[in-house]
Design a protein around this nucleic acid. Structure first.
Ligand SMILES: [Mn+2]
Ligand SMILES: [Mn+2]
Ligand SMILES: [Zn+2]
Ligand SMILES: [Zn+2]
Lengths: 135, 135
DNA sequence: AATATATTAGATAATATTTATTATTATCTA
DNA sequence: TAGATAATAATAAATATTATCTAATATATT
C-alpha cells in the first residue's frame, strides 16, 4: 500500500485511490484484463469510470510499472512489471502461469541463425497445466 | 490461383472472388492486418465491404487455412497457415520475419520444469533485423 | 446452357473496445 | 490550510468487430 504510493510518486504520478486500487487489483490477480479490473474495483468505488481504468492502464504502461500480455484469441491482460518470463496458458482452466526460465541458449541460437539483435521476447505456451492433467 | 480454389473447395467453402483475393493478398504480403487487406483489395474490388473481410478472415481461421499473429502494441496480423514457427519483429523497419527453428529442447525444458503439456507456442521476438543493424 | 439450391456479399445496424473532452474534485507542496 | 496542478467522472467520439437481412453468386444438376 505505502509501497505502491511510493512507486507512483517516484514516477511523478499522484497516488490516487483509483490508481492504487488498480495496482492492488492487478497485483492480487496476477494477470487480469480491463473488464475484470473494472468490475472488481467498482465494488469498492461504484463511481469509477471505465475510462479511468483505460487512462491509468496506459499511464502505468508508459512508465513501465505494468506490462501488457497478449494471449491468443483472448483479450489483453496486464501484470505488474517483472523480470522477463514466459507465460503458460492452460486451455482447460484458463489460468496464466509465470515461468522464469533461462532463455539465453535459445536466444543465442536465434541470433546465430539470423543475425537478429534481440531486445525482448513474448512467449506464450498453450496447453494443459499439471493440475488439469490429473483431473 | 487454382490451388487456392481447391483449398477453399476442399473445406466446403465457395471459391468467391473476394475469398481468393483475400488469400492472394495474405500470401503476397506474408503477414498483414485487416485494414491493409481491405485497402489492397479495394483497388481491385471497390465495392468490397470491410465486413466481408472480417467475415472471411474468421471463416478462414476456423478452417485453419490462415492463422492469427498477435504482436506487442500492434494490430493483429494474419498469415497462411504454415508449420509452427517463430516471429521476429524488427522495431526499425517493422518487418515480420519467419524463423523455422527447432524448439524441442526448449519445450522439453519447459515441460520438465513445470509438468505443463504443450500444444502450441506463440513466440515473438522483438529487436533489430540484420539489414537494419547495418544501416 | 439454363435452372435450382444453398452460400455468400454488400449494406447497414448493432455491439464492443478504446480514446478524447471538459467541468469538477482530489492530491501534493509550501 | 490554501493554492497550483493533476486526475476523475461523465460523456461523447472514434475505432474495431460482429450480426442481420436481402440481393447476388457459385456450383451441381439437368
Ligand atoms: Mn506474467
Ligand atoms: Mn509467420
Ligand atoms: Zn489448468
Ligand atoms: Zn529491420
Amino acid at each position: 500500500m505505502e509501497k505502491l504510493k511510493d512507486l507512483l510518486r517516484s514516477n511523478d504520478l499522484k497516488a490516487t485511490h483509483q490508481r492504487i486500487a488498480i495496482l492492488e487489483c492487478i497485483d492480487k490477480f496476477g494477470h487480469i484484463n480491463i473488464d475484470a479490473i473494472y468490475d472488481y474495483i467498482c465494488e469498492k468505488y461504484p463511481t469509477m469510470s471505465k475510462a479511468t481504468v483505460y487512462r491509468n492502464i496506459n499511464e502505468l504502461l508508459s512508465y513501465d510499472i505494468i506490462e501488457e500480455i497478449k494471449l491468443p484469441h483472448k483479450n489483453k491482460k496486464y501484470e505488474i512489471k517483472k523480470v522477463p518470463h514466459i507465460h503458460l496458458l492452460c486451455k482447460r482452466c484458463s489460468k496464466v502461469e509465470d515461468l522464469f526460465l533461462e532463455t539465453k541458449p535459445f536466444f543465442n541460437s536465434i541470433t546465430s541463425h539470423t543475425g537478429f539483435k534481440i531486445d525482448h521476447s513474448f512467449i506464450v505456451i498453450d496447453g494443459t497445466c499439471r493440475a488439469c492433467q490429473q483431473s
